[in-house]
Amino acid sequence: MTAATQTHPAHLEYVLRLADTSLILGQRLSEWCGHGPVIEEDIALTNIALDLIGQARLLLTHAGALEGRGRDEDQLAFLRREPEFRNLTIVELPNGDFGQTILRNYLVAAWQRELWQALPGSGDAALAAIAAKSLKEARYHVQHASDWVVRLGDGTDESHRRMQAALDLLWPYTAEFFSATPVDEAAAAASVGPAWASLEAAWTGAVTPVLEVATLAMPARTPFLSRGKAGVHSEHLGHLLTGMQHLQRTYPGGTW
C-alpha cells in the first residue's frame, strides 16, 4: 500500500469530486433513456450518460486505490452515504425539462473540458490518463450541448423563455465550480491538478459567447454558494441515492 501511504487526503478528495460529478450527472442523464423528445436525441443523451459513467468507473477505481481500504468502484458508488459524496451540487438537481438538462450538460461539460485539458500535466499518472480519454468525450459533449443551447435559446418564444428560466435556475450553482477550497490549494501544490478557481476565466470565456448567440441573458453573480463538493448537498441527492443504491442496500452481500 505504498501508493496509499503517499496519498495526501486532498488528493483523494480531488479525485472523488471528479468521480462523483461524472457519476451523478451520468445517473441523472440515464433517467432520460426512453423518454427523449425524439429517438435520435434519446440515443445521443444515452451516449453521453455512458461516457460519464465510464469516467466515473475509472475515477472511482482510482479513488479506491488512493484510499487504500480495498474499496472498488461499486463499493464507493453504492455504499457511501450522502455526505460522503463530493459531486458538484448542480449535477444532483432534478433534470427538469429537456432544455434544463441540456443547459446543465453544457455548463458542466464546458467546465470538465477545461479541467481535463489541464490534467494531462498532473503528477498523478493514472489521473492524467483518465483525463486524456475524458477530454475527447467532453469535447463532444460541449459540441452537442452548445448546439442545443443555441438552437433552443434562439428557436421559438417558448423555447427561449424555458432556456432563460433554466439559466436563471442553474447559474447560481456554477459558482461552486470555481470556489476556492483548501483541497484545491493542497492538490495544486502537490501538482495533482489545477486549483479550480484558475479555470474560471477560460470557462467564462467559452460560455459567454455561446449564451450570447443563444440570446440568453447571463444572470448576475449572487452570494449563493452551493457546497456539494465539500459533502453538503441539496435535498435531491438523498432521493437520487435511494434509487441508485436500492439493490446493494436491500440485498447486502449479493453478487451482481
Binding site: 426512453g34 423518454h35 427523449g36 423528445p37 436525441e41 433552443l152 428557436g155 421559438t156 417558448e158 423555447s159
Partner: peptide, 16 residues
Amino acid sequence: QAWEDGAWVREAAMAH
C-alpha cells in the same frame, strides 16, 4: 408524455 413533452423542443429546433 415523452412525445408531448418534447414538442416544444422539436418545434424550436425547426424554427432555429
